[in-house]
Simulated scan of single mutants.
Amino acid sequence: MDKLKVTYEVMLGLSAEMIWDEALRKYRSEEVYKKIDKALANRDKVAFTELTEELKTLI
């Protein structure tokens, strides 16, 4: 029974970590999208290029 409990706790921890990672990725993606919009508005090609490359790694 103890082995089952340990396995369950490990799986629960992994699930929590996956949810946390997804939330952080989503938050960062939203921030990068906002910065891309700002770079486009300011006609900042360098920032736009850097941010789109970062966005590709997040997606």
Results as ranks from 00 to 15, higher is better:
30 E>D: 12
34 K>P: 01
53 E>I: 11
10 V>H: 00
56 K>H: 14
56 K>L: 15
56 K>A: 15
26 K>V: 06
55 L>Q: 12
34 K>N: 09
21 D>F: 03
30 E>Y: 05
35 K>T: 02
57 T>C: 11
4 L>Q: 11
41 A>M: 14
14 L>P: 05
24 L>I: 06
4 L>P: 00
54 E>Y: 02
36 I>Y: 06
3 K>G: 03
33 Y>T: 15
51 L>R: 07
9 E>L: 11
36 I>L: 07
32 V>N: 10
31 E>P: 00
34 K>D: 13
41 A>P: 01
48 F>K: 11
37 D>V: 13
40 L>A: 12
38 K>A: 15
29 S>I: 07
2 D>H: 09
15 S>E: 09
49 T>N: 09
23 A>M: 00
54 E>A: 01
40 L>S: 10
48 F>G: 01
29 S>C: 08
34 K>E: 10
12 L>S: 03
37 D>C: 12
4 L>F: 08
37 D>L: 14
38 K>I: 15
24 L>M: 10
17 E>G: 02
46 V>H: 00
13 G>W: 04
7 T>G: 00
7 T>H: 01
40 L>P: 04
33 Y>S: 11
5 K>A: 13
18 M>P: 00
32 V>K: 10
38 K>L: 15
5 K>L: 11
41 A>T: 09
33 Y>K: 14
53 E>H: 03
9 E>T: 09
8 Y>K: 09
10 V>L: 05
8 Y>R: 09
32 V>Y: 06
4 L>N: 10
3 K>P: 00
46 V>Q: 09
19 I>C: 02
13 G>L: 04
24 L>A: 03
46 V>M: 04
22 E>W: 01
8 Y>T: 10
32 V>H: 08
15 S>G: 06
30 E>H: 05
26 K>A: 07
48 F>R: 06
38 K>P: 07
39 A>S: 13
21 D>E: 13
12 L>E: 06
11 M>S: 03
8 Y>E: 11
